[in-house]
């Protein structure tokens, strides 16, 4: 930025001022979530719109953790998201590797199919999947959700893994293959260690995707024993007597794994989203 010191000062203040607005807008809803979750019940409704809580208490968190249902939902979500993350990353790593390293007949069509599945409205598969999964015993089962979430994550995760593999020179596995390794061994011993950050980022993306999914979780698993956290929270919020405090505390808890992931993959965010531009 050029100009006299005064013009520059104005320009910079404007720059920071507008950015500050965006920062506040981005953080405020989350701040409010945390604030309410920490406000004890006796002042929750009387001082509901104070910007700062008068007193702070962890009582809502105690309520949530003492509530066996929420623990169950949490456990279900961790299982579903964890297995989904591992399964989809493994499958996507394999197919992403194929796209990155081989030119093969049908490649164009396979990529096309993956893109199309990303464009189609998910709602159209809701009813058929319900009808297919029912007889297979995959409704009201964590396994059913894992299968669905893995399948839905694969196209995006494949493009992501492909972009990570593309960043690793082909010569490395060629050297390993000349050194006496099979391609698979070269993939495991040479390429995989170099892609670890990418694998971690992909797992993170898949984990958060599964962690936040609600449509299929609502439709397929109506039994409380197999409900995931989002479903549990949503059903809790529609009960006759709503307890906002514990609900928000539960919301904050649901945020934790996501935020941890977010700060871990900061570096890969731009790359992830450039691949995400393909996802649409």
């Amino acid at each position: 930025m050029r100009g006299s010191p005064r013009v520059r000062l104005v320009k910079w203040s404007l720059h920071y001022g507008v950015l500050l607005l965006f920062v506040v807008a981005a953080l405020f809803p989350l701040y409010w979530l945390v604030k309410i979750s920490l406000t004890p019940n006796d002042s929750l409704y009387t001082h509901s719109i104070d910007l700062w809580p008068a007193t702070i208490s962890l009582e809502h968190y105690a309520t949530v953790i003492g509530n066996s249902d929420f623990l169950l939902f949490f456990r279900n979500s961790v299982i579903v998201s964890g297995v989904t993350a591992i399964a989809s990353t493994l499958l996507a790593a394999a197919s992403g590797y194929a796209f990155s390293r081989f030119v093969f007949r049908g490649r164009y069509w396979i990529v096309g199919v993956m893109l199309v599945t990303q464009m189609f409205p998910l709602v159209i598969v809701i009813t058929p999947i319900f009808s297919i999964f029912g007889p297979l015993g995959l409704t009201n089962s964590l396994m059913g959700l894992i299968i669905i979430y893995t399948a839905f994550n694969i196209p995006f995760a494949t493009f992501l893994m492909q972009s990570f593999f593309d960043g690793i020179p082909k010569e490395l596995e060629e050297a390993a293959m000349i050194d006496g390794a099979t391609r698979f061994k070269a993939l495991l011993q040479i390429i995989a260690p170099l892609t670890l950050p990418g694998i971690a980022a992909t797992m993170g993306f898949c984990f958060t995707g599964a962690w936040g999914e609600i449509l299929f979780a609502l439709l397929l698993n109506s039994a409380a024993s197999t409900s995931t956290f989002p479903v549990g929270l949503l059903l809790y919020s529609t009960r006759a007597t709503i307890e906002f405090g514990p609900m928000m505390a539960a919301g904050v808890l649901a945020l934790l794994p996501v935020c941890i992931f977010f700060f871990l993959i900061q570096r890969y965010l731009v790359q992830g989203l450039t691949a995400g531009a393909v996802k649409g």
Binding site: E174, I178, A181
Partner: peptide, 17 residues
């Protein structure tokens, strides 16, 4: 396959692991 040809190769990029 390359591994059974008993040859060694030096690449332009060196391709060190």
């Amino acid at each position: 396959p390359p591994r059974d040809r008993d040859i060694a190769m030096v690449f332009q990029s060196y391709a060190l692991y």
